[in-house]
Write a protein that binds this DNA or RNA. Structure first.
Length: 596
RNA sequence: GGCCCGGUAGUUCAGUUGGUUAGAACGCUAGCCUGUCACGCUAGAGGCCGAGGGUUCGAGUCCCUUCCGGGUCGCCA
């Protein structure tokens, strides 16, 4: 059989044919979506990435052709030469865009046969993700997956268009780089040339982009692959893509301005949606106290309220004790849930917050004439009335309280707020609420390491008015860092960097590095900063998450062509895998696995 | 590393207090069928019940171990 497709030159994509093509002779190529064999008449739905078109084979009109058509099965790859014809009114299929026309086949060439696929190539299939990932190349044929990857391509293109137009330069940085302390666990790559030494794959191009600023490339971006060896989640996997941006001679408002215009541009291009600029800004402190989260979902209310002042003199030891220990008591009014939720459901909420460190969840159901609650007996009428007043409680409401250290209270109520939002159906998919969170703490205390660690990263600039606290009250220092949040998901974050080597040394000292350690780890950066560093700052977006949200998906695996599963393996290739002993010997590596 | 859920035909699932030969739907194969588009009709094939061990006269079902998948906590500057 002649395998060459020389005599077939594709003229049209299946999904792009329409009434304007009627009577045209066309050649299309693609996969057999479905065959409907009526005996003397065979219909084929032919699929390419543009869509589906119906091809009809008539036994009377072309016998040779017809014998071939009878052999067709799902996912065979074919080339078809034929004529586009208008369908008679009673045979129109309004369900597909090409349903007003069909192709009458004159010639058929089977380019490739196919085994029966493990699942149908169509949207809304009922099949486990594991099977989809094992046969990812088939899964990616599904229209939804193709749309997702096309969307991803478009988002990248729009970002590049925008940034190029603003005068940014796209510059690549190394994948094989140096392990630096702080941050996530590194992926290491052994060096053959330097036995016992390792490269690290970049967690982000952070240091390189700062050095590029020093080198005078004052507007840089890169769509960069990053690696972090930490456990996976629905919105996280070990290799991911970052849109990395850095600018010189700018302050915080310049960077936020460019970035929000860029995101607005993407929304305009994608959904023809106008985002109102500037985006709302909220300080970290306010975000935590109102939403219990540094990435608040502002599509719904259910905000937190501090009621410590009201309950501090009550007889309820759980509340008063928490306050005495420096914590707080905060509450959410779950409006209407007093009547909506059963006692069992309320108990479920109690269990829910325990997952996030709260020791308990106190509740009050507000009814017309009384309050139903295990805790009202600890309060006098005045205190109860003040609570109802503060929480704007009305009949039918459910008041939920957590008392503990502030970070526990925020975490528990923040997560509870989201859970309530989900249960009450308040998360409106048609809304895109974008905002900035600013004034993050520069440090956070690590119980594990018994020292302060950088909340953002060690090169983040402190706010000018807080620099004085750097040595003695690091917990008070706020940073020039900012996150962009979309519907409760952090899609990007950045900061103004330290460009002064003295301040950088003070910062590293505050993080517990002495001068030798600091120079050992970051010497190249500290040295570079002695040669004239411009003020600079930037931003980095999680592209996977951003595209996931735009695609309306709930896992980044739906917008990554070949993703990894929870144990960081690839079900299709089987990576990671053992390697030959010879490879290890070249790298001077011996495997020593305990308890296997 | 902890906790929760799941693993039975190619796929998605059902499978009673432990009891004949483990079922359904879709898919697949063959035949018939000239206007289907989730084509239809008829017939048929297809199973190491994730793996290993245990309890029992008897295990898909109960117990233990383990592997695999999902979610989540820790972790993720």
């Amino acid at each position: 059989m002649d395998q060459s497709i020389k005599k077939f030159k594709r003229t049209h994509m299946c999904g792009q044919l329409d009434q304007e093509d009627i009577n045209k002779d066309v050649i299309v190529m693609g996969w057999v979506q479905r065959r409907r064999d009526l005996g003397g008449l065979i219909f084929i739905d032919l699929r390419d990435r543009a869509g589906i078109v119906q091809v009809v084979f008539d036994a009377k009109k072309c016998e040779k052709n017809f014998d071939e058509a009878e052999k067709l099965r799902n996912e065979y790859v074919v080339a078809i030469k034929g004529q586009v014809v208008e369908r008679t009114p009673e045979t129109v299929n309004p369900k597909i865009p090409t349903g007003y026309i069909e192709i009458v086949a004159h010639e058929l060439m089977i380019l490739s046969t196919s085994k029966t696929p493990p699942f149908m190539i169509e949207d809304d299939i009922k099949v486990s993700e594991a099977i989809r990932l094992k046969y990812r190349y088939l899964d990616l044929r599904r229209p939804k997956m193709q749309q997702n990857l096309i969307l991803r391509h478009n988002v990248c293109k729009w970002i590049r268009d925008f940034l190029n137009n603003e005068g940014f330069l796209e510059i690549e940085t190394p994948m094989l780089t140096r392990s630096t302390p702080e941050g996530a666990r590194d992926y290491l790559v052994p060096s053959r040339v330097h036995p016992g030494s390792f490269y690290a794959l970049p967690q982000s191009p952070q240091l390189f982009k700062q050095l590029l600023m020093l080198s005078g490339y004052d507007k840089y971006y890169q769509i960069a692959r990053c690696f972090r060896d930490e456990d996976l989640r629905a919105d996280r996997q070990p290799e991911f893509t970052q849109v990395d941006i850095e600018m010189s001679f700018v302050d915080i408002d310049d960077i936020m301005g460019v970035n929000e215009r860029m995101i607005a541009y993407v929304f305009k291009k994608n959904l023809n949606m106008d985002i109102t600029l500037p985006l709302p800004r909220i300080s970290y402190k306010e975000a935590m106290s109102r939403y219990g989260s540094d990435k608040p979902d502002t599509r719904f209310g259910l905000e937190l309220n501090d009621v410590s002042d009201i309950v501090k003199n009550s007889d309820f030891k759980v509340f008063t004790g928490a306050i005495e220990r420096g914590g707080s008591v905060r509450a959410i009014n779950a409006e209407g849930c007093g009547t909506k939720f059963s006692r069992r459901e309320i108990d479920g909420l109690v269990d829910y917050v325990k997952d996030f460190g709260a020791k308990g969840l106190a509740w009050i159901v507000v009814e017309d004439s009384e309050l139903k609650s295990p805790i009202t007996k600890f309060f006098n009428d005045e205190q109860l009335n003040m609570l109802l007043d503060r929480l704007e409680a009305k009949s039918g409401d459910l008041l939920l309280f957590v008392a503990d250290k502030d970070d526990v209270v925020f975490r528990a109520l923040g997560e509870l707020r989201l859970e309530l939002g989900r249960r009450l159906g308040l998360l409106d998919d048609s809304k895109y609420n974008l905002l900035w969170v600013t004034e993050f703490p520069l440090f956070e205390y690590s119980e594990e390491e018994k020292r302060y660690v950088a909340k953002h990263h060690p090169f983040t600039a402190p706010m000018d008015e807080d620099i004085k606290y750097l040595e003695n009250s690091p917990e008070k220092v706020r940073s020039k860092a900012y996150d962009m949040v979309l519907n409760g998901v952090e899609i990007g974050g950045g900061s103004i960097r330290i460009h002064d080597s003295n301040l950088q040394e003070r910062m590293l000292k505050a993080l517990g590095f002495n001068k030798e350690e600091a120079w050992d780890r970051f010497g190249f950066l500290l040295q570079a900063f002695q040669y004239g560093a411009p003020p600079h700052g930037g931003m980095a977006y999680g592209l996977d998450r951003f595209v996931m949200l735009l695609a309306g998906e709930s896992s980044i695996r739906e917008v990554i062509a070949f993703p990894k599963v929870q144990n960081a393996s690839d079900l299709m290739t089987g990576a990671p895998s053992p390697v030959d002993l010879k490879q290890l010997e070249e790298l001077n590596i011996k495997i020593d696995i305990n308890d296997v």
